Simulated assay, not measured.
Amino acid sequence: MSDSLITKRAIAEALKQVCREKPFDKISISNITSVWGLNRQTFYYHFQDKYELLSWIYYHENFAKIAEDITLRNWDQKIYELLLNMKKEKAFYMNTIKEQEHTFESYLFEMAKALFTEAIVSLDEKKKLTKEERDFDAEFFAYGICGIIVDWAEKGMKMEPRLVAERLKSLARAAERIAYLRGQAEL
């Protein structure tokens, strides 16, 4: 592991620690760097600002790992892993999603949309749906998943991650059946 990656991870951990005590919008770069005794120049060498750091954490600690080998068969397990990670760092995610939900949500949305697009294309065997219809349907389901996960986090992550993932999978199966029937219907 490179020194740069080690430093980035240390800075990320520092932000998580500070987020346990302060709202994200009240956190300064000095608050972050003081955790490990780093200077501000070290922070700015690696990140432009705390928002870039936050985006880096979301991507590298969640979405890069999930997207690595996600498939239509294992996406619910990957969502479960995401939810477990979020619950493990509950204070951090509850604090930062409220402040910067669009950063988190945009990563989640793009991943979910790609999966649903793939599913819809595979279910539309007769190629009856236009690209616009497929995109619309995929975005509908992606927004649904994003909304449920963000809402779950904002409400305190009370439901167990396994149950959230199972319910999302159940809804997706129902959606698959609808998409299949829609693709099979004679117009």
Rank of each mutant, 00 (worst) to 15 (best):
K65I: 12
K65F: 13
K65V: 10
I66R: 08
A67S: 13
A67K: 12
A67C: 05
A67I: 03
E68T: 11
E68C: 06
E68S: 12
E68Q: 13
D69A: 08
D69P: 01
D69V: 03
D69G: 09
D69R: 09
I70H: 03
I70V: 15
I70Y: 03
I70N: 02
T71E: 07
T71P: 02
T71D: 04
L72A: 07
L72T: 09
L72I: 09
R73D: 14
N74M: 03
N74K: 04
N74Y: 10
W75L: 01
W75C: 00
W75Y: 13
D76E: 13
D76W: 10
D76T: 05
D76N: 12
Q77F: 11
Q77T: 10
Q77P: 00
Q77H: 11
Q77S: 11
K78R: 14
I79V: 14
E81C: 03
E81Y: 10
E81I: 00
E81L: 08
E81Q: 12
E81A: 13
L82D: 02
L82G: 01
L82M: 12
L83A: 03
L83R: 01
L83T: 00
L83P: 00
L84N: 10
L84Y: 06
N85C: 10
N85E: 14
N85Y: 15
M86K: 02
K87S: 08
K87A: 07
K87G: 03
K87W: 07
K87Q: 15
K88R: 15
K88W: 12
K88D: 14
K88F: 14
E89H: 14
K90Y: 12
A91I: 08
A91V: 10
F92T: 04
F92P: 01
F92Q: 02
F92A: 03
F92D: 01
Y93F: 14
Y93E: 05
Y93L: 05
Y93M: 03
M94A: 07
M94C: 09
M94S: 08
M94L: 11
N95H: 06
N95R: 05
T96E: 07
T96P: 04
T96R: 02
T96H: 05
I97L: 06
I97H: 01
I97T: 07
K98Y: 12
K98S: 13
K98N: 11
E99Q: 09
E99D: 12
E99S: 15
E99N: 11
E99I: 00
E99Y: 11
Q100N: 11
Q100F: 00
Q100H: 08
Q100L: 03
Q100D: 08
